[in-house]
Write a protein that binds this DNA or RNA. Structure first.
Length: 938
RNA sequence: GCUCGGAUGGUGGAAUUGGUAGACACGUUGGACUUAAAAUCCAAUGACCAUUGCGGUCGUGCGGGUUCAAGUCCCGCUCCGAGUACCA
């Protein structure tokens, strides 16, 4: 018998479950520490070896913190609403709740087998009514608030109504739609109830509006900007077009500045913060109003270069703007309408594809320059985006390349306003390297001076002002889906009405079919019972709708990011039925101390959740403004796909070495399970695997068929998935945990390679043999030697330091070195093995628990404090001291205090680098600093 | 295009943040123990030259620079990865 990981792991997993070892208490004398993982979406494919990487790291840290005397909250749950379960339901008629439950069961089993120290008593599932009740509740709170710029926080909508009644909205300093008209108090009062409600939607933090959305026909739903990658849907890669629809949106733009500022206060990876900064996209510039000729309206543009105002030679509007219809000259009407229609038909991808082709059309109208009063032609062109700035740009061809290209293409004038710069070939976009020319009162000024001067001038004559613009768009919140949180709203006279808080949760109705209705309404339109009776205050059948007391309910559901925007607070108080999180629990746990997850959520979940956090903080419902103090992105574990090479049109496959450069071959993926570590293919296995290979001819090279390899994302469809179950079966969970950490730095993406796992497995076996020689226990209670103690305490120091700095790969190495050295010393003293076992405990908890028990300890290892390094053991001889010279004639030595000066001198003289430079000079003075550092000044 | 990362043996990766580059592990080669295999252990393993010893030279993507000392700092390139993309 040797290291019997199967028995050991089973035993301890059962022990932890039975004793609820990792249950966290909301009251404790100990300091608290909250370690959070991004909870998984339970997909049908189960976990592959890439998924647990972050969970392993967070588990190691959690266990370490417990050993360090912290009350650790380390929960887990499921982001269980989502598309795949719904698509499976569409195909099979199986209720998504059922498949979700099955998948969760499988996930739980896989997670348990890896020995994670989760507190499962706090499990959350976003698709459970007990949970989404509170998601709906937050939605209603958002509906009930607006963002006050003066207070710089969310305020109840009732306050806004009060202001409207007193003074209308002219003096209101709040975030609202760009199209919001100005009204007086009497106008507000003259509004009907319906009109008032409609007007308030311009201000509410979640609002219903006719919006241009990203429509994905294949998925049958709208997508948020972060769900589109390169112009196609993130999920499935389908085409995305623009479409106007009534949609719920979240006014995240109100929080743009605070979301930006908050980044400076949190310990998140710099790259991720940079991504969020770019996504928010703050730019400083000015608004400029251009009067339309023979028209009462003005066109407002946003520009970051108001200093180039005198270089404007035309104006371009986004074709989607309503204003376009209004101002088009009758002569140009046909051309403009044709162009607008064409743009709408094109998908986002097509539009992105021909960035180089200039397209556009003249509207036949003109605006007047605010200073020179020159006539400036108005064009439309799809290089101008409707949803950035005001959807209109003042075109300065000499200073902007796109304007330049547009001008060249349509033969529009280009006016050079830069002193001593040629614009023959391209626009001049450098700021600050020259001065402005031909620009009236700006002539001769630098970029900075011109900016200041022109903004002042614009403000003085009321035709513009300095302003800040953000790229961040409001987030569309409606999804035409079944498997999501119902939006707790019903429609009365076409106006959305919120359900009362006491009626939550509004639970998902049963439907026959999960597809949209024949009329194209979302799947909830299939429900027979989906109307709200305002008298009975309950959900009733659709047939009862009379628009007097019974009204239709909202058919859209919430997007995937709704539940994940606040779930981390639910863990603190998962069973509370009176509140989303109890005040006391929130005050105790306060915030997440360490959050682990992938960087792919940078502009999605991690931004939206910060937004909700700030909102709930404004309402005094949460204690902090940023919920995650520190965040670490774990890198993806990639798969190593295997390819065989088919000669086109044949059934012949060539071994990789046989392929000549001239050969045309088609690479075809085969399951990595049929390939060994030397890239040799199990031909018989492949033949049985798929019929296309059954009768195929495999051309061998030196008797074997070698496959080609390529590193890519691990996925079922690429046949490169390595299942953790197989690894656990073969090597055990402890080996898997340590190996995943050993693979490389936690933040780095790295390819999985099963071959290397034997090194880690050998290490655990070696560790086991420190206790046993075959069947015989070799542990004794004799005093360990100084050498053994030195090895141990060096390792304690390194392991502690490395875990604290999340350098788990070097930490595993340190443990390996330690065990190697102890093995060669034949060190079996329990005084060494006990602390060593504690060091191993976060990484290989099963084996450590077992050996701890074998050492005769009464308490389990989880209750024991981590060992501390005793510095006095660390240095015993003078020969190997690191000596460093820092250029200021000073040496730094790490020594223990009981050394005599002769020993120190010897240590210094041992260092040839120092000797060479010092040319034999001897130290003038010794400075002995208490505490092991000694400075020697020459 | 812009922004942010990165480049170290056959491979994954170390290097106290300016101080003996290549820790640890995989792989490879040789050896021990075995009838044999597995398991385990030992040795070698950056490249080149010398191997009748010792040794020597070159080496962290490329070219410069600072320094007694550079993988690490500065300047200029090349390549790779990620994010973003007509953002006015």
């Amino acid at each position: 018998m040797g290291y019997d990981f199967k028995t050991i792991e089973k035993k301890w997993q059962a022990h932890w479950a039975k004793n609820q070892t990792f249950k966290a208490d909301n009251h404790s004398e100990k300091p608290k520490y909250y370690v959070l993982d991004m909870f998984p979406y339970p997909s049908g494919a189960g976990l592959h070896v890439g998924h647990p990487l972050g969970y392993i790291a967070s588990d190691i840290y959690s266990r370490f913190k417990r050993h360090k005397g912290f009350n650790v909250l380390h929960p887990q749950g499921y982001d269980s609403f989502g598309l795949p379960a719904e698509q499976y339901a569409i195909q099979t008629g199986q209720h998504p709740a059922k498949t979700t439950q099955e998948n969760i069961n499988r996930y739980r089993q896989q997670l348990d087998q890896m020995g994670f120290s989760f507190d499962w008593s706090r499990e959350v599932r976003t698709s459970e009514p007990d949970f989404y009740k509170w998601t709906q509740w937050i939605f209603l709170l958002l509906f009930d608030h607006y963002y006050c710029n003066s207070a710089n926080k969310a305020q109840p909508i009732t306050q806004l109504i009060e202001q409207f009644e007193r003074k209308g909205n002219e003096t209101v300093n709040a975030v609202c739609d760009a199209s919001t008209p100005n009204i007086t108090a009497s106008e507000w009062k003259s509004f009907s109830e319906t009109e008032q409600q409609e007007f308030l939607l311009h201000y509410r933090l979640t609002y219903l509006s006719e919006a241009e959305v990203n429509w994905c026909a294949d998925l049958g739903t709208v997508l948020a900007n972060d769900e589109i990658i390169n112009g196609v849907s993130e999920r499935g890669g389908f085409a995305v077009t623009k479409k106007k629809m009534k949609q719920w949106s979240m006014r995240i733009g109100a929080y743009a500045e605070r979301l930006l500022q908050g980044l400076d206060r949190i310990d998140w990876p710099e790259s991720l913060k940079e991504m969020q900064r770019n996504w928010i996209g703050k730019s400083i510039g000015a608004k400029v109003f251009f009067q339309i000729e023979n028209h009462e309206k003005r066109i407002e543009v946003f520009t970051t270069r108001p200093d180039t105002l005198f270089g404007v030679t035309f104006m371009t509007l986004a074709p989607e703007l309503d204003l376009v219809q209004e101002i088009t000259h009758p002569d140009q009407k046909e051309a403009v309408e044709k162009y607008v229609e064409e743009t709408q038909k094109r998908t986002q991808r097509e539009r992105m594809a021909d960035v180089k082709n200039c397209t556009g059309v003249f509207t036949g109208s003109y605006v007047l320059h605010p200073f020179t009063k020159e006539r400036i032609p108005i064009w439309i062109g799809d290089y101008v985006l409707a949803d950035y700035g005001t959807g209109a740009v003042m075109a300065v061809p000499c200073g902007d390349q796109r304007d330049y290209d547009f001008a060249k293409h349509f033969d529009l004038p280009i006016k050079n306003i830069f002193s001593g710069v040629s614009i023959e070939k391209e626009a001049f976009t450098d700021k600050g390297t020259t001065v402005i020319d031909h620009s009236d009162f700006l002539t001769g000024l630098s970029y900075e001076e011109a900016m200041k001067t022109v903004i002042k001038a614009l403000e003085d004559q009321g035709s513009g002002e300095g302003t800040i613009n953000y790229r961040l768009r409001d987030a569309i919140f409606s999804r035409q889906r079944y498997w999501g949180e119902p939006i707790p709203m019903y429609y009365q006279e076409g106006l959305p009405q919120p359900l009362d808080l006491k009626h939550l949760p509004l639970t998902l109705p049963e439907v026959e079919k999960y597809l949209p209705t024949p009329e194209g309404a979302p799947p909830l339109g299939n429900a027979e019972t989906w109307a709200w009776d305002t008298q009975k205050e309950q959900v009733v059948a659709n047939v009862l709708i009379d628009h007097k007391t019974v009204f239709p309910l909202e058919l859209n559901t919430m997007p995937g990011w709704a539940g994940s925007s606040w779930y981390f607070y639910r863990y603190m108080d998962a069973t509370n039925t009176n509140s989303f999180v109890g005040k006391e629990a929130a005050a105790y746990w306060k915030e997440v101390d360490l959050y682990l997850g992938g960087s792919e959520h940078a502009t999605g979940h991690l931004l939206y959740s910060r937004f909700w956090q700030k909102f709930l903080f404004d309402l005094d419902l949460l204690p902090v403004e940023e919920y995650a103090k520190k965040l670490i992105n774990q890198g993806m574990i990639l798969g190593t796909s295997a390819f065989v090479y088919r000669k086109p049109g044949t059934q012949t496959y060539l071994s990789k070495e046989l392929i000549q450069e001239a050969d045309q071959t088609e690479p075809i993926r085969v399951d990595v399970g049929f390939v060994n570590s030397a890239d040799e293919l199990d031909i018989e296995g492949v033949r049985r695997w798929q019929p296309q290979f059954e009768k195929a001819t495999f051309k061998l090279h030196n008797g074997v068929y070698k496959v080609g390899r390529e590193v890519e994302k691990m996925s079922k469809s690429k046949y490169n998935v390595v299942n953790p179950d197989t690894i656990c079966e073969q090597y055990g969970a402890d080996t898997l945990r340590m190996y995943e950490m050993f693979l490389g730095p936690i933040e780095q993406a790295k390819p999985w390679n099963t071959a290397g796992i034997s090194g880690v497995h050998n290490f655990l076996k070696k560790y086991w043999r420190l206790f046993y020689d075959g069947e015989q226990s070799v542990v004794h209670n004799e005093e360990p030697s100084k050498e053994e103690l030195k090895i141990l305490h060096e390792t304690i120091k390194k392991v502690t330091h490395d875990i604290e700095h999340f350098s788990f790969n070097t930490c595993v190495s340190a443990l390996m070195i330690c065990v190697n050295e102890l093995t060669s010393l034949k060190s079996h003293s329990s005084e060494i093995l006990s602390p060593l076992t504690l060091l191993l405990s976060p990484f290989a908890p099963h084996l450590a628990s077992e050996m701890w028990e074998q050492l005769g300890n009464k308490t389990t290892i989880d209750q024991v404090d981590f060992p501390l390094a005793n510095e006095s053991y660390l240095i015993q001889d003078t020969k190997n001291y690191p000596v460093s010279f820092n250029g200021k004639m000073r040496f730094t030595l790490e020594l223990s205090l009981d050394l005599d000066q002769a020993a120190i001198q010897e240590a210094v003289l041992q260092d040839s680098r120092a000797l060479e430079y010092l040319d034999g000079k001897t130290p003038k003075k010794w400075i002995v600093v208490p505490n092991k550092i000694i400075n020697i000044v020459y």
